[in-house]
Amino acid sequence: MNALIATNDIRSAPNPMLAYALESKYEFLRVLRTPAFAFPTLLFPPMFYLLFGLLLNRGSDNAAHYLFATYSVFGVMAPALFGFGVGVAIERERGWLALKRVAPMPPGAYLLAKMAMAALFALIIYLVLATMAATLGGVRLAVGQWLLLGTIATCGVLPFCALGLMIGSRANASGAPALVNLIYLPMAFLSGLWMPLTLLPDFIARIAPLWPAYHLAQLALATIGRGDGSALLPHVAALLGFSAICFAIARRWLARAL
């Protein structure tokens, strides 16, 4: 062992893409090997959809399409909110984030890896939901609509990642899951993901634009031709604005947390 430095000296600049790729890969493996996270995240949206979207809704073609779109949005929320909200809280509190900040990890690799993981989980959930909708739910869409909705379901993780990051940069590890649940399920309901807002009290419909899930649901519904006819650009702007605000707050909180 007297050749510590001389052996196998690989003379090249660090390849940030390699770090990004490995960071994402291991983030995915880490989550996959944590059944307490992976199972509920992957199973809850299909189970909810099976129960409320398929079994309790027999016959209405309109409802079948509406619920498929909104449950796709529901499926987007969990991996992003839990992955960031709970994941960051734990890694911040236990020192893993500090060690990575000390190491020359490429800037952004941590967040991008977690976002890639959330997007991949969201895509898997969408594929399961889409299979159920097409086979059991009688949902008929053009190929382009399936693809576009899948894209929305994947890219739609952004605002929820930002919200989760904000939670994770402040909440303590033991309290984060409860806090995320407290936001996740009520927001799904208040955004009309489980039943149309028109069936809910008027004030719920009026405050719905506060929630990112509402805006994402409007985009999803418009994609399959079931939207309320409102302009789409404000919804996109609302989602981006919401994400930017959450990221900015999280940045400040994280800087203070160390």
Partner: peptide
Amino acid sequence: LFRSYYAQ
């Protein structure tokens, strides 16, 4: 993972 952060 940690090796990927470094040039050499």
